[in-house]
Amino acid sequence: MTEPTLSCPSPARDDGERITLAHGEGGRRMRRLLQERILPTLGITVGDSADAASLGNVGQSLAMTTDGYVVSPLFFPGGDIGKLAVFGTANDLAVSGAAVRWLSLGLIIEEGLAWSLLEAVLKSIAEAARLVGAPIVTGDTKVVPRGAADQLFLTTTGVGELFPVVPPGPTALRPGDVLIASGPIGCHGVAVMAARERMGFLPPPTSDCASLLPAVAAMFAKPIVPRAIRDATRGGTAAVLHEWAELSGLAMRVDESQLPITPEVAGVCELLGLDPLHVAGEGMMLLAVSPEQADAALEALRGTEVARFAQPIGEVIPRRLSPVLVRRGLGRELPLDEPLGAPLPRIC
């Protein structure tokens, strides 16, 4: 049975609670969605919107990054997809040695998404963009049929100005370099997993979703230039360590007892049989610094809110058979495997 087709859509439905395909097909509904809802919520003045944003004459070295966000659920303790999209992009620039200056935003909306949800995400995007100090200068909105997306997908592109000296990257690592975690590991992954599966932990584990730019800037201001910085997102700390080992031709050794892990993350990982080293964070990064600069780097990091729990976790060592080693339990060094897809819980 199908609903009777209205030849002339009732104007009242324009302000309905859900976004429909009609909102994505150009024309008046699309214009109204943009001009009356999306742009004001993002704090963008109506009338500014042209097909491309002019960034002016910058006269500075720039870096650019782009990332897609498909997290489910859209809202989780400690964050939401909007905050994640802005901070994630700002962090990708920050760990590359750049401060985000401009953002673009792509929205792919599944038809039927409640306006209230979209509005909440947009408000969160606006707030996060304000925090990192980068306006959203251009964007795009598409509405796709039900099932072609999962509620809402975001794409953010960030353009940032490079600091005068940037980290040379993992190929510059040397044996003896100190590995530092800027904060507790695995918080985001555990929070999203617990929210997605409605595991009912009380209090619910909270995501660490945050901008790392202040911590990176504090170091560069010293000036301390780490050899490598990387945010430990998908694949967690283990993925970063494996990547560094591969690119440097060296091995990474961390000490389990030194790892900053919150009791919530430790508890959930214990229960589900996961290794916190494999779980993603969204507001923490790994740094490799020369041994001479390690203390100063820790001091600079700990002076910022986002990295107040920064901690040395291990060191770079000459190449071994296993590229990443963890000193565990009774003190033995055991290899750490690379994460193999999404972690799945054990059954008993």
Binding site: E246, R320, L321, P323, V324, L334, D337, E338
Partner: peptide, 11 residues
């Protein structure tokens, strides 16, 4: 053994 033994390359 694959995960914890260092007798082989895990990569």
């Amino acid at each position: 053994y694959f995960r914890y033994s260092s007798s082989h390359a895990t990569h």
